[in-house]
Computed example of a mutant assay.
Amino acid sequence: MQKKSKYIISGIAVVLIGIIAYFSFFNKPKEESNSQKITVGIMNGSKKDDQIYKSVAKTAKDKYGLNVVYKKFTDYSQPNRALAEHEVDVNSFQHIAFLDAWNKANKTDLVPIGKTIIGQGRIYSQNLKNIKDIAPGSTITIPNDPTNESRGLYILQSAGLIKLEKNKSLATVSNITSNPKNLNIKEVDASQTARTLPDVAASYVNGNFAQNAGLDPNKAIFVEPIDKVSEKWINVIAANKTDKNNKTYEKYVKAFQTKENKDLINKLYGKTEVSAWDIKLK
């Protein structure tokens, strides 16, 4: 009798295990079984930035069944390193010029898979109302890191103050071929450009530092035009080259590039940043 009871108990145990296995592995909710996960590297930004990324994640979930997880970084050297080491699937924080410079310096093969926004560069002054009022011999400050120094110089060229050697991806002050007003172009740390304004005629101040310094974008004395020259400053979603055509990553790009997100960007940032995936460059 005891032996028979053991068989019965063993049989019941096997049935129970089968039932548990079925509900655990084969009977998942449809939404969970169909969902895909993507980890996106971003910078630790403003509340406005968080609103944009939250909106994109919701669209990705609702429209494509994509579960977006954001990994935030505090240093600009971190997101590309994390991408190259596959700690994140894609990242979204940099413009094309920064990505190109990173690949060259670090021998990586990261590629853009979708455009996001472009923040138009601005030149500010504490005393002048127009870029044309800059007097001969004046000092203008620009950031000293390679990509932002180059951007500052190209903006000065667009403003008609200097001319640069042609076909220079990243320009430096040594590439200036014409400086008719004999301007003193001083390179300083990007975080210090706004602080130099009381002592100089004008300064190119990056968008985030301008915002932190309380500078009014509507009072800039010159605004960078969006054209072929400024194309390299368009921000992108980047991936490893081997993942260039990854369908899951393409879904995240599509979730970013929506009319709803375009309207939200316009609402939150106004003139300081604009959606870049549908602009026509002249």
Rank of each mutant, 00 (worst) to 15 (best):
I234V: 15
G270I: 11
N246P: 09
N91Q: 15
V223K: 07
S169Q: 12
A220H: 01
R151D: 03
I131R: 00
I118E: 02
K168W: 09
A84E: 11
G121R: 01
K47P: 03
V253W: 00
L197S: 01
D133T: 08
E85T: 12
A159M: 04
P79K: 04
N80M: 15
K244F: 06
P198Y: 05
Q78S: 15
A82V: 07
S158K: 11
T59L: 06
N206P: 12
L281M: 10
L183A: 05
Y53I: 13
Q211V: 00
L110W: 07
I265L: 05
Y269I: 08
G152Q: 02
I96P: 06
D89K: 00
K251C: 04
V56T: 06
A213D: 08
R195V: 04
N144K: 11
D278S: 11
K72S: 14
V253K: 00
K47F: 12
K4T: 15
I17C: 13
G137P: 11
D145V: 02
H86T: 14
Q51I: 09
K166M: 08
A97R: 02
S24P: 07
K6G: 12
N167P: 03
S275H: 07
I131M: 03
S178Q: 15
V15C: 10
D89M: 07
I134Q: 02
Y249G: 07
A135D: 10
V69S: 12
K244M: 12
D199M: 07
K48C: 08
I162L: 07
T193F: 00
L264F: 09
S174D: 14
D227E: 05
Q157K: 11
V68M: 06
